[in-house]
């Protein structure tokens, strides 16, 4: 089992993600300018500011060579995990439903939050119990999940809402407290909380490790 962590020139959390992945499997970086996914079994798009994000977040990254390859990989059913900026990029690329808007308070926010595992039957949450609470940090300016009401209904019906902020924990006014969603096929997950920053008790929590552990337990492609 090998993870590939995408690195854009403006990625910030790629080493954190790499370290988190390596707790459970092999992992290496994938350069944004290359189309080769190097035979990895799961792709992680980490947090940061891909190409500076001076334009709408993720709007340029979706056109990068590596994202072409990730699109094909996802279409073939390969697992893709987008964290924070990775979530934004996946939404821009059309690999995930909805969009991420600027936080209700219009500010960057770095805070530990609690989320609930709504769907434990995904490749990303298979080691979690349904309803399990995870303590994981968020840190973003643009994390307010938005989709039209009808689409939100559909997402909930089809089990695509995987993580939800617990009552009082929604840091950005995301619709229906959504913290993480998958695509219809369930092989692409985007989430605003940073599980890679919750894999060591010394730095605050180990709850995020569940996500990497779940992915690592998949049999290699």
């Amino acid at each position: 089992m090998k993870f590939g962590v995408v690195r854009f020139p403006g990625s910030c959390d790629e080493h954190d993600a790499l370290l988190a992945c390596r707790r459970f499997a092999d992992a290496e970086l994938l350069w944004h300018g290359e189309r080769d996914l190097k035979g990895v079994d799961a792709v992680v798009i980490p947090g940061g500011f891909s190409y500076g994000d001076y334009l709408r977040v993720g709007a340029i990254a979706r056109f990068s060579p590596v994202m072409e390859a990730v699109g094909e990989w996802a279409a073939a059913g390969g697992p893709v995990l987008g964290i924070c900026n990775g979530f934004q990029v996946l939404c821009e690329a059309g690999l995930l439903p909805g969009a991420l808007l600027v936080n209700a308070e219009l500010r960057f926010l770095c805070r530990q939050v609690e989320v609930e595992v709504v769907n434990a039957e995904t490749p990303f949450t298979s080691t979690c119990d349904p309803g399990e609470r995870l303590s994981v940090p968020v840190k973003h300016t643009t994390g307010r999940y938005f989709a039209p009401e009808l689409e939100l209904d559909e997402l909930e019906r089809s089990g695509q809402v995987v993580l939800r902020y617990l009552p009082g924990q929604n840091p950005n006014d995301s619709r229906r407290d959504i913290a993480g969603v998958t695509n219809r096929a369930g092989n692409v997950l985007g989430l605003m909380p940073h599980p890679e920053h919750a894999v060591d008790a010394l730095t605050g929590s180990t709850d995020g490790a569940r996500i990497f552990e779940s992915l690592a337990s998949l049999s290699p492609a």
């Binding site: 988190a20 960057f108 805070r111 890679e196 730095t203």
Partner: peptide, 25 residues
Amino acid sequence: YEQYDSIVGSRTVRRPGTADAAVLM
């Protein structure tokens, strides 16, 4: 301090407001 990313780098053992000094492993 909530407007600052205090955890990138996976070294931050004590975050702002929780200890008298920042602790980075």
